[in-house]
């Protein structure tokens, strides 16, 4: 059973949980200053897309997928990052 737990997926799960708590703190406290929530929001979006990438690569096992499928997923993450942050900053 220990072998099932000691995998890269478990390490990724720990990182994902840590990042979730970090985003929650950033989104509920004024870490960047009372009026600087725009930059806090950008950090939160960057963290979210990084988490999406980790789920895809390590939980969906796309890191072992053919280059075309992995590339499509990496493209999805890149588009998500640009679109969400772009609209956050420009809108």
């Amino acid at each position: 059973m220990g072998a099932l737990v000691r995998t890269s997926a478990t390490a990724v799960w720990l990182i994902l949980c840590g990042l979730t708590v970090t985003s929650w703190v950033l989104g509920t406290r004024h870490v960047f200053g009372v009026n600087d929530h725009v930059w806090a929001s950008v950090v939160i979006i960057v963290v979210a897309v990084f988490k999406v990438r980790l789920v895809g690569l390590y939980f969906m096992e796309l890191r072992d997928a053919p280059r075309s499928l992995r590339g499509l997923f990496e493209l999805y993450c890149a588009v998500l990052m640009v679109v969400l942050n772009g609209m956050q900053l420009l809108n």
Partner: peptide, 11 residues
């Protein structure tokens, strides 16, 4: 993972 920050956290 995207919906939570977008709707609940990001302003």
């Amino acid at each position: 993972i995207v919906i939570f920050p977008l709707v609940f956290l990001v302003r």
